[in-house]
């Protein structure tokens, strides 16, 4: 049924730390690799080695430039399904293929019911759903439902592929319904934000904003380029060399 559950027992999701993400795309690639052999039909590409490669991916990393001049920063921005509490993609589905699980809040597509109308992708403001170019069914992040409960793989692997692979530890997986979980604590302490709150989707996933850089003093001294000669006070043996050379 494509009605949303009024409440979910658990609220599984991700915290993505924009302060840490280095934009390496490892999560993107591992997501693609796992979901090509995991839940549902393979995550297909069209024309992968040809002149116009395209394909379905469930996680993509954008890079944004924020702010002006000295204060400008580059922010790498991974984007995947936010497993919204009020998921508009679920309620629009006419076939019953899309659903939100009441036990853990994961939004999934039953690919055997999907007729490929694409309305759910239109309803999602985040672009989290992509049509599979060969199977003609809608694909989306499953929060690696086939990993997190999978007792056939080592326990340390029972988390989403993107989280498992992140070399910088910018991605965290857990239960937001538990206030003591790591994701709840991180989100609370670091002002975890919702994307497009005005769309009233109530996303589960939270993004931790970049922490302000502590280079303010350097900037006041004249930008973040190399310091001018004489600005830096030398110490130790360098100071002795400097004084000696001065005397010669």
């Amino acid at each position: 049924m494509t009605s949303l559950p009024s409440k979910t027992e658990r609220s599984l999701g991700l915290v993505i730390d924009l302060d840490i993400c280095v934009g390496c795309h490892a999560c993107v690639v591992n997501c693609k690799a796992w979901n090509t052999g995991g839940y549902g039909t393979p995550l297909a590409d069209s024309d992968p080695w040809g002149p116009n490669p395209s394909g379905a991916w469930l996680n993509r990393v954008h890079a944004f430039e924020v702010g002006e001049g000295k204060d400008a920063a580059v922010v790498h921005f991974p984007k995947s399904c936010l497993h919204c509490e009020d998921a508009p993609c679920v309620t629009v589905c006419p076939t019953g293929a899309s659903f939100k699980r009441s036990e853990d809040g994961i939004v999934l597509v039953d690919e055997s019911k999907c007729m490929g109308c694409g309305l759910c992708a239109w309803a999602c403001p985040y672009g989290a759903r992509e049509m599979d170019p060969s199977a003609g069914v809608m694909k989306k992040c499953t929060l690696c439902v086939d990993r997190i409960y999978n007792e056939n793989i080592p326990e340390e692997d029972r988390e989403p592929a993107c989280v498992r692979t992140c070399p910088a530890n910018a991605r965290h997986f857990g239960d937001f319904a538990d206030p003591e979980s790591e994701v709840s604590r991180l989100s609370r302490e670091r002002d975890g934000t919702d994307l497009m709150p005005e769309q009233e989707t109530r996303p589960t996933n939270k993004y931790l904003p970049p922490i302000g850089r502590n280079g303010a003093a350097v900037m006041e001294a004249g930008g973040c380029g190399a310091p001018e000669e004489g600005q830096v006070e030398l110490q130790g043996i360098l100071a002795w060399v400097d004084r000696t050379l001065e005397r010669i």
């Binding site: 924009l18 944004f64 924020v66 702010g67 002006e68 204060d71 400008a72 920063a73 922010v75 921005f77 934000t193 919702d194 994307l195 497009m196 709150p197 005005e198 993004y207 904003p209 970049p210």
Partner: peptide, 9 residues
């Protein structure tokens, strides 16, 4: 709002 980065500019 889409990125949640509005506070930075």
């Amino acid at each position: 709002t889409a990125t949640g980065l509005g506070q930075m500019g």
